[in-house]
Design a protein around this nucleic acid. Structure first.
Lengths: 372, 372
DNA sequence: CCAACTTCCTTCGAAATCGAAGACAAGCCG
DNA sequence: CGGCTTGTCTTCGATTTCGAAGGAAGTTGG
């Protein structure tokens, strides 16, 4: 997909533009040039014209959409014990989403080969005939070196250190391959649901604590560990040692794993972070108190970051995001301690995208790679 | 200066390109197009050819420079009690730099009118005849709303709240006018001296504590207060109330003002932050201990930000940057507590640009506005 | 000293892009 | 219903940009 056309296709695929006129405004190209390119894209069956849009006072625009036959993306959101898998069309709309159990502790080769087989399975059963696969992507629950596509010293992925995930997955396909941290992909996916918010912090509160950072509309990767807040030292009464070797890391108090541990000690049967959220929904006082405290600790850490980054919104996702006291406690801490200028128009809210955020994010980044 | 030509002129002015070939590589334009545009810029006397560069194995490039007659920028770095003023040529090289006493407590009108008079004075005495003034810019020691050019709730600028600095200064000139926070401008100025470092945190340790953040090579403004670390709560033995109404802000322990206060209490005659650095240079134990503690506190705050942003370098400037123990203590704290992935290639160093960083930064941003 | 190679820059026809003008298709309104 | 306004899309000549080829001015190495 060569440059100029790629830009136009991307604008349509991401939903930013629906008509030739909008394409002209957003791409900076002259209306005549846009018409030419669109004509070519229609001929190539990558775009289709689909009825007319709503008038804004004049002639109605002829609505453009990415053709459903233009191609598919296979994406996965890889967790410790299960993976969400999906096929997306080029505009990022899921054809099918499935959750399947898996175990990343079996190591990278086994897991990635399993994933490739699962993709093949989905393609066989759900892909319309003749529609080509155009890209493959997955999240991993650990840092990824943006330069090499390798996992780097992941704490929750035994056996994966320095494994070239992108290369191994790419060996199955002659296609663009994307490998990115789970919280980062979640942030990218969420970002599309927050138009006008160019600076976004997306917290993933699951069994670990992660954060993805969107700056000026683009994912900030840093050296691969950007967005890490797990190992910030927090103000705590007791003293807990973290696996990283430092005392009183946020993760040791506020992660889903830590909360599960504390609840298990009190005799509750919790096996997944969602169980914690369920206890909170049932108004179990012990769970609510723990979650609220976790929210406070997270909020105090975010305080520093909000003052420094001045995001437009903080979005909370992950399996604990359903626990209302978590969000409330984060809000309370941030609004109390941050500079008024930083919180004046700051929104702190729960995910708009839901559990598929990372899948949609993978689609979004893959689209860029496919149209490069 | 219309678009395509502006881009080329900017590349030469910023020192990124010195020959037509480099311009072609960096701008993405075809060599033939570059030759055409450069010819026009030479005709317009905005560029000049100046001898030949060094060969890289083939024909020597014909070195291009921005003409000294292309224009001037008048810039200021406004402090509480004195301002640094400079005239720069379009490539950001100072013709003259002066420091003059002033007092921002006299209010915005008086200060800005004084500044305009000082610019006129410099232009009369140092500007070559016939060279036009093309832009005016100043730093202010407080947050600036990027949208409106107004100062927003500045703590060290009594009487300036919500004052439209850019508009008032612009009334004297029919030119691009730039108003930006001092630490931010310092960061922009410093960034040019760190090629290859696209993500930079620049700490200004003066009578206050500020920080400027460069992400992907561009200044991150947020809502105007981005880069603020003054009001982060720190782990302290005693309990100090900050002017912001919260206890134990970093500013209350680690700012130049706080250090001056503590030293004055111990009978030392200190009137400016530089006096603190001088005491440290003289190895006065009380001063060294205080500064080292300040560095530790600052470093602990930076820890959170380094994990989150993964910058390529942390640069320390401001009048306390000459105090070696400050940097050492920052280094110690950051390297001890941060993730290995985040610190592996992280450089923590003192300013390469020196006291003129903010002036050069103003020149850099102004150039963008002039060539827009 | 003389090929052989590199790199820098320009020339010139081909191709892409632009921009102004107009055709087209609505909504608005008396 | 028939002008009027507004916004969308296309046509076509003018302009800009490209790209391949070649000349200019070096270095390198026998």
């Amino acid at each position: 997909m060569r440059g100029a056309q790629g830009d136009l296709l991307r604008l349509v695929a991401t939903g930013q533009a629906e008509s030739r006129a909008e394409l002209s405004r957003l791409s900076g190209l002259a209306p005549s040039s846009v018409s030419l390119r669109v004509e070519e894209l229609l001929d190539a069956a990558l775009l289709v014209e689909e009825g007319a849009g709503t008038s804004r006072g004049g002639r109605r625009p002829r609505r453009l959409r990415v053709s459903p036959t233009a191609g598919l993306l296979a994406v996965a959101d890889l967790g410790a014990h299960h993976a969400r898998l999906a096929l997306l069309d080029l505009s990022g709309v899921p054809l099918v989403v499935e959750e399947r159990p898996c175990d990343i502790a079996l190591g990278p080769e086994a897991t990635l080969d399993w994933m490739a087989a699962a993709f093949d399975d989905l393609l066989r059963s759900h892909a319309p005939p003749g529609v080509p696969l155009r890209g493959v992507g997955t999240s991993v629950p650990g840092p990824v070196d943006p330069a090499t596509g390798r996992v780097v010293s992941p704490s929750r992925m035994p056996g994966w250190n320095a494994f070239p995930v992108a290369d191994h997955l790419g060996a199955h396909y002659d296609l663009p391959v994307l490998v990115e941290n789970d919280a980062n992909l979640m942030a990218v996916g969420e970002a599309r649901a927050w138009p006008g918010c160019d600076n976004l912090m997306v917290l993933k509160a699951g069994s670990g604590i992660g954060c993805g950072l969107i700056v000026e509309g683009r994912l900030h990767r840093g050296r691969g560990a950007a967005g890490d807040i797990s190992h910030v030292r927090v103000r705590a009464d007791s003293s807990a040692m973290c696996s990283c070797g430092h005392p009183d890391c946020l993760e040791a108090y506020a992660s889903g794993a830590a909360l599960m541990g504390a609840l298990a000690d009190q005799g509750f049967a919790v096996h997944r972070p969602a169980d914690v959220a369920a206890l909170v929904a049932d108004a179990v006082p012990e769970a609510t108190a723990l979650v609220r405290n976790a929210g406070r600790l997270i909020g105090e850490v975010l305080t520093v970051l909000v003052n420094f980054i001045n995001p437009d919104a903080i979005v909370v996702g992950g399996s604990l995001s359903g626990a209302e006291p978590l969000i409330s406690a984060v809000r309370a801490a941030v609004y109390e301690r941050c500079l008024p200028l930083a919180t004046r128009d700051l929104e702190i809210a729960v995910t708009r995208t839901g559990p598929d955020a990372a899948l949609l994010g993978a689609g979004s980044l893959l689209l860029d790679a496919v149209l490069a």
